[in-house]
Computed example of a mutant assay.
Amino acid sequence: MNQPTAIEVISVSKSFGTYQALNSVSFIIGSNEFFTMLGPSGCGKTTLLRMLAGFESPDGGSILLNGREVIDVPPHRRRVNTVFQSYALFPHMTLEQNVAYGLENLGWDQARIRRRVGEMLERVHMGPMARRKPAQLSGGQRQRIALARALAPEPEVLLLDEPLSALDLKLRQAMRNELRTLQRDTGITFVFVTHDQEEALDMSDRIAVLGGGEVQQIGTPTQIYEEPVNRFVADFVGETNFLDVEVLETAPGQATVRTPFGVVLTAPATGRAAGDRATLSIRPEKINLGDQAQGIAFTGRITDKNYMGGYTHYTLDVAGTALRASRRNASREGDTIPLGATVPVGFVAGAARVLAA
C-alpha cells in the first residue's frame, strides 16, 4: 500500500467471558481510503469498530491512529466520528442545531459554526430543510444529516456502523453512491462495517473479510470476489459452486484436479499437494450453457430455472452432481432453454479456484 497509514491494528484480541470475539487481528488502513470490514453477525467487526472509536478496549494488542497509540485515549480526544445505524439524532433540535452540536462542544466560534453547518447541509443536499426536525424527514434524509453532523468537525477517520441497513433497497443503492462521492470529495478515511457483500463490493477500495474473530482475507473487491483464499471467503462473498475434487498434481500457483463427474482440469491453487482432497470453487456466472459453452466442456440436464430479469439462474445435473449457472438475458425474449433439456456446459479453467477442502 503506497498511501500514508491512517490506522494500524496490531495483534488485537478481545474476549467477552469465554467468548473469543477477536483473535490477534492485524491490518492497516490507508489515509483517504474507503475500507470495509465485512462479515456475518458475531464475526467481530462491530467490536473492532467500537475499539477504533474508543468505546471498547482490547485485551491485548495496539491500535495506532496516524502513528499514535490510542488505546488509552478517550473517544472525545480522538479525531474519529461514528455514524450509527440508528442515526442518533436529537429529536428536539432542528437539523442545523444537530449538525452544530458537536462543533459547539469543540468550542468553535459562532460565525465559524454557521459557515460550517451551511457547508455541510449543502454538501448532503439538505440546505433548504435546515429548520426542520428529524421527525419530519425520511430515513434517507436522516441518514444524510447524521453524515453531515459526523463530517462537520473534519475528523481524520469516519466510522460507519451498518448505516444503510434500515433503508429500503432503492434508497440503499442511492446512499451508496452518495457515500462514495462524499468520501472522495472530503478525502477523509472511511471505515465501513457491513454484512452486505454487495455494499462492500460496490463502495470499497479494500475489504477485510472477517470470520470467527479473525481476518480471513484483505484485498480489493476484485481480489476478494475473483481470488478467494479459502472456502469461507468464497462462500460468504457472492454465490459459488463447491466441488469435492482430488488433486492429481501441482505446479507453482496451480493444481490439476479430477472433478466428481470425471472432468480433469488445471486451475489456480495454493498450498495443495498431489493426493490431497480439495474443493473446487466456480461462480455460477462463469459457467456457460448451450451455444455459449466454451473451455472445459461437458453436458448437463436443466433441473430448475429461475427468471430474475437481467439473468436466468439454472440448476443442472451433471452426472449426479448439482451445478448452478447464471445466464444473462441479453435479448427481450430472455432465456429460452427449457426445463429438462440436456445442454453443452463449459467454463474456462482459470475462472475456477482450488481451495483447501
Score class of each variant (00 low, 15 high):
M1S: 01
T5R: 01
S11E: 08
V12N: 05
F16A: 04
A21E: 11
S26N: 02
I28K: 15
E33V: 02
G39Y: 05
S41P: 11
S41H: 07
T46H: 05
T47W: 12
M51S: 10
A53T: 01
S57R: 15
S62K: 15
L65V: 13
R68C: 11
E69L: 00
P74I: 02
H76R: 15
R77Y: 14
V80E: 08
L89I: 13
P91K: 02
A100M: 06
Q110A: 13
Q110W: 06
G118W: 01
L121G: 03
R123V: 02
V124Y: 02
V124I: 08
M126I: 01
A135E: 03
Q136G: 01
G139W: 06
Q143N: 12
I145V: 14
A146D: 03
L147D: 06
E154R: 10
E162L: 05
E162Q: 02
P163M: 02
A166T: 14
A166P: 07
L179N: 00
T181I: 11
L182T: 03
Q183E: 03
F190T: 03
E199K: 05
A200M: 02
D202F: 13
S204N: 00
R206P: 10
V209P: 11
V215H: 10
T220V: 04
P221R: 09
P221L: 03
T222R: 15
Q223L: 08
V229H: 13
F236M: 10
G238V: 09
E239T: 14
T240M: 07
E246A: 12
E249V: 05
A251P: 05
A251V: 09
P252W: 06
V257Q: 09
T259N: 07
T259E: 06
F261R: 04
G262T: 10
P268C: 13
G271C: 08
A274K: 06
T279W: 07
T279Y: 04
S281A: 15
I282D: 04
I282T: 08
I282V: 14
K286I: 03
N288Q: 03
L289Q: 04
D291N: 14
D291L: 14
I296F: 00
F298D: 04
F298H: 04
G300E: 07
T303A: 10
K305W: 07
N306L: 15
T312Q: 00
D317V: 15
V318F: 06
A319I: 03
A322K: 13
R327H: 12
R327V: 13
N329S: 14
S331M: 13
S331R: 15
T336D: 14
I337Y: 13
L339K: 13
V343I: 14
V345L: 04
V348K: 11
G350L: 09
R353P: 14
R353M: 10
V354G: 07
A356G: 14
